[in-house]
Design a protein around this nucleic acid. Sequence first.
DNA 1: ATAGCTGCAAATGCTTTGCAAGGCC
DNA 2: GGCCTTGCAAAGCATTTGCAGCTAT
Lengths: 140, 140
Amino acid sequence: MNTKTPNIETDIPRLLAKHGIRPTKIRRAIAGLLFDGVDKHVSVDDVIDLARDQNIKTSVASVYNTLNQFASAGLLHRVMVEQGRAFFDTNLSEHHHFYLEDEERLEDIPADNINITGLPELPKGRRIKSVNVTIRLKDN
Amino acid sequence: MNTKTPNIETDIPRLLAKHGIRPTKIRRAIAGLLFDGVDKHVSVDDVIDLARDQNIKTSVASVYNTLNQFASAGLLHRVMVEQGRAFFDTNLSEHHHFYLEDEERLEDIPADNINITGLPELPKGRRIKSVNVTIRLKDN
DNA sequence: ATAGCTGCAAATGCTTTGCAAGGCC
DNA sequence: GGCCTTGCAAAGCATTTGCAGCTAT
């Protein structure tokens, strides 16, 4: 048995609790879809499709509510690359992204090796909330 | 006289021509608003307001058409930071952005000093279209 | 019983499109 | 004249909101 695979019965409620989110049925179900041990970048539609595939009955509004709540709680990161649709990133460690334009898909760049130097002083009275590197790629 | 200030009568048509854009009245007017020698990050609404301020009569659709055309022609860069609204950046040199969340405003970071090292290999068959660093800032 | 959650449908906000009228070479 | 452009209004999409009914404690 793969010990890396989260146990949906125990780990998911614990994960939600850790972020101060009440573990309702829908939230547990959606969290179960997202946190299965594999990092993902999903759109709202992706989640709706995933839910349908697993016979999880829910609605557009609830998926939005749930993902937004997860994002505010820090369980997901919202990533904007294109006009219109947002991606939600389940990878919470510091990292960056390739954006493959032809596939409209994100791919992680581990932050391990990446180093950004030469940043100027921040504007007064502000501090960094996040640093985001997005490298747009196109077909050869 | 400030020789850096573009002359709208000559420089704007030349700028449009250089990018293969026919210099119609509206296009010249909007380009004149944008390329006045000061780098800007404008939303569509900003442009509509700017136009109104200068008694340039136009429409929402035409502003969208014009900005989109400028962006495809490489006269502007489209920048996405938030859900919903796009910014158009008149600074075409390589650079990056602070995003001041509290003011919903972008600020340039010159690329001069910035250095990104440790990028992994690109996915097969792809090449870099652009590298984008966005540093989100919040109030202290 | 109560507080919070869910999901439908309607509303919102930004952007795009269809199309008729107008402008320019 | 003919082709491109303009601008109005309508349509399109992703997302949010209002609210009635439901659920779980």
